[in-house]
Amino acid sequence: MRIVKLASFLAPKLLPLAALALLAGCATPPPASDAEALAEFRATNDPLEPFNRAMYATHTVIDTVALRPVAQGYRAVLPQPVRTGVRNMLQNIRTPIVLVNDMLQGQPRRAGDTLGRFVLNTTIGLGGLFDVANDHFGVPYHNEDFGQTLASWGVGSGPYLFIPVLGPSNARDLTGFGVDVATQPLTWFGQGLAVDIIAGSVAGLTVVDLRESYLDTLDEVTRTSLDPYATIRSASRQSRAAAIQNNDAAARAALRPAGSR
């Protein structure tokens, strides 16, 4: 509970912080005479680059001493089926956020998928441990968040932001993250030590599960990129664009003819 609350407390506070950074140090745009360079500067959308690079450096330290080793340990100690079970549980717990955003985006079919998955997985899937909806009913998980909802309403991303631990984001998606935390009933559900422990475990496991899922990709980026900061910035913008278009496994499965899955 405390961690979840902390996150919802922090997210809105980070925006003024970004505004401060704007005063502290901005990337200098190229002169108007160099049209190509100027167009690229706009597409990169990182006017706060000096601040973001400092945040990225901070994140790298945290990642090196804590996040990455913990994710490696998690992968080494727990076998794949257990980790899959954990991921299934976390996805099931996230249902309210996904459902609300499916509806806010005017996607009744996807909302139906989300609700149906929750019912199946919570009951037959033993409280979300098994993803029977995907494995036996062919309804795969899809994610949504309020940042994507805002994007579907035509809200622009705002400047790129790199937030330690949370990773690559932007003004819109960071705001969305705060709203999602507030949407999660777990944030508001009861009080007491047991509730705090459950909410804290969910937040901690979410970070570990997410970092584990990026272990290979990020190791690859560190090994091959000449500028990991720029690579992550570009890759995150592209994958965000794909997510906003709902270009995910669920959408692709829907495109396949019946009987092929």
Binding site: T44, S225, L226, D227, A230, T231, R233, S234, A235, Q238, S239, A241, A242, A243, N247
Partner: peptide, 12 residues
């Protein structure tokens, strides 16, 4: 997963 290798590399 929606991330183009050549776009990412060009940005890098």
């Amino acid at each position: 997963e929606g991330t183009s290798l050549r776009l990412t590399t060009r940005s890098e």
